[in-house]
Amino acid sequence: MGILSRASYVVRSKVNALLNRAEDPTETLDYSYERMRDELQEVKQGIADLTTQKKRLEIQKRRLEENVDKHNEQAREAVQQDRDDLARRALEKKKEKMSQIEDIEGQIADLQSTQDDLVEKKNELQRRIDEFRTKKETMKARYEAAEASTRVSEAMSGVGDEMSDVSRALERAEERTDDMEARAAAMDELQESGAFEDALSDEDAIDRQLEAGRTESEVDAELETLKTEMGAGGGEPTDAPADDDVEAELDELRAEEDDEESA
């Protein structure tokens, strides 16, 4: 094989491969079916044309037969009138018309034979078209089912690039959702522990404890002062508060102290 022949073969092979990939079998089947129907229509048209020609010849034959009868009557009448010359002419025309009728009958027979052949071919072509149509629809259904199954399989297995992107996007969404849920749980835990209040305050733990000690010392000093004043007065002053009032005031101070400690 020469270089040019090999190059031509390679080109044809690649072109054929491209056509195979681009070809849609369902479209090819539909196109073939339409071509067969066009051929059937052409055959039917040919049969119709032949039938028309045959009918024309049959009409012409009937007219010639009528002329034959006419010339035959003319010959009889001429003989009755002793006009042999006219009778001879009438018989000559009769013979001429009969010869034409014989030719037309031959043509009609040929057209009938051709018409019969075309009708038989038309019936055979119709049968093949019906058979092809059944196979075409079956093949199209199989191809479409296989194509749909392939698409579903690719989607389920994630073979396609689009499904891979979707899978990666889903993984990223799950990771971000997990992070967000963990962050929300941590915020709730810090809120319950009071860590947010500590973070917003300028005081640390030591400052809060010292402040609590100072408050307690001040309360104790004030209490001692109160006791000293009440003891130095001796007796029971007329305007001194009753023991119940003192106890109530002491209870109120203790309650405030407890509230501060719990805070």
Rank of each mutant, 00 (worst) to 15 (best):
Met230Gln: 11
Ala221Pro: 00
Thr225Val: 04
Ala185Ser: 12
Glu192Pro: 00
Asp220Tyr: 03
Glu229Asp: 10
Asp207Phe: 03
Ser193Trp: 01
Lys227Met: 12
Gly231Met: 11
Glu224Tyr: 01
Glu189Ser: 10
Arg214Trp: 09
Asp188Ile: 03
Asp204His: 05
Glu203Ala: 11
Met187Lys: 10
Gly194Gln: 07
Asp198Pro: 00
Glu229Leu: 15
Ala205Asn: 09
Asp220Trp: 03
Ser201Cys: 07
Leu226His: 10
Ala212Ser: 13
Ala195Val: 06
Leu223Phe: 10
Ala185Gln: 11
Leu200Asn: 07
Glu229Ser: 14
Gln191Ile: 03
Asp207Lys: 05
Ala205Gln: 12
Glu229Gln: 15
Ala186Asn: 03
Asp202His: 06
Ala205Trp: 06
Lys227Arg: 14
Glu224Phe: 03
Ala185Cys: 01
Met230Phe: 05
Thr215Lys: 07
Met187Pro: 00
Asp202Val: 07
Glu222Gln: 11
Ala205Val: 07
Asp220Val: 14
Glu222Val: 04
Arg208Phe: 02
Thr225Phe: 04
Leu190Ile: 02
Val219Lys: 04
Glu224Cys: 01
Ser201Thr: 06
Glu197Thr: 09
Gly231Asp: 15
Leu210Met: 13
Met187Ile: 13
Ala195Arg: 07
Ala221Glu: 10
Glu211Met: 06
Ser193Gly: 04
Ala186Asp: 12
Thr225Asp: 14
Asp188Pro: 00
Arg183Pro: 00
Leu210Tyr: 08
Glu192Val: 10
Lys227Trp: 11
Leu226Asp: 06
Ala205Lys: 12
Glu222Arg: 11
Leu226Tyr: 06
Met187Tyr: 05
Ala185Trp: 02
Glu203Asn: 04
Ala221Ile: 10
Leu200Arg: 13
Thr228Glu: 15
Ser193Ile: 00
Ala205Ile: 05
Ala221His: 06
Ala195Thr: 07
Ala185Gly: 06
Glu197Val: 07
Arg183Met: 09
Thr225Ile: 05
Ala185Met: 08
Gly231Ser: 13
Glu203Met: 10
Glu229Asn: 15
Arg208Pro: 01
Glu189Trp: 04
Ala199Asn: 01
Asp220Ile: 14
Glu229Gly: 09
Lys227Ala: 14
Asp202Ser: 09
